[in-house]
Amino acid sequence: MVVGASGGLLAWDLTDLDRRLRLADSTDDLSTIRRRHLVWLGLAAGIGLLLAAAAMLIPLRFSFALTVFLALSAVLGMTRLVSWLHRG
C-alpha cells in the first residue's frame, strides 16, 4: 500500500510538473528545473518511504491514550502547517 501510495504521489507530482513546464517557452532552460525537481522529489519520496517502512517494521506499542494524544498532536501540527501555508 505504501509503495502504491508513493507511486500515486510521484505520478501526481510529475503530472503537475509537466503542466507547469508546458507554460514555458521552448528556449527556456527546463532541464535544470526538471533535474532539481526530480532531486527534491526523490529525496522526499525516499525519506517518506524510509520513515513509513520504519514505522511499519519497528514494532512500537503505545497505550490507547498515548495513541490518541499523538494523533491529536499530528492533526494540530498539520493544522498549524496548513494555516502557515495559507498565510504564506
Partner: peptide
C-alpha cells in the same frame, strides 16, 4: 491503524520538503 498512520508519513514528508524550499 499503524499502517495507515505510517502511510501518512509519506505525504507529511512531501509537504515538509516543499515547505523547506518555499
Amino acid at each position: 491503524g499503524g499502517l495507515v498512520l505510517a502511510l501518512s508519513l509519506l505525504f507529511v514528508i512531501y509537504l515538509v520538503a516543499s515547505l523547506l524550499r518555499a
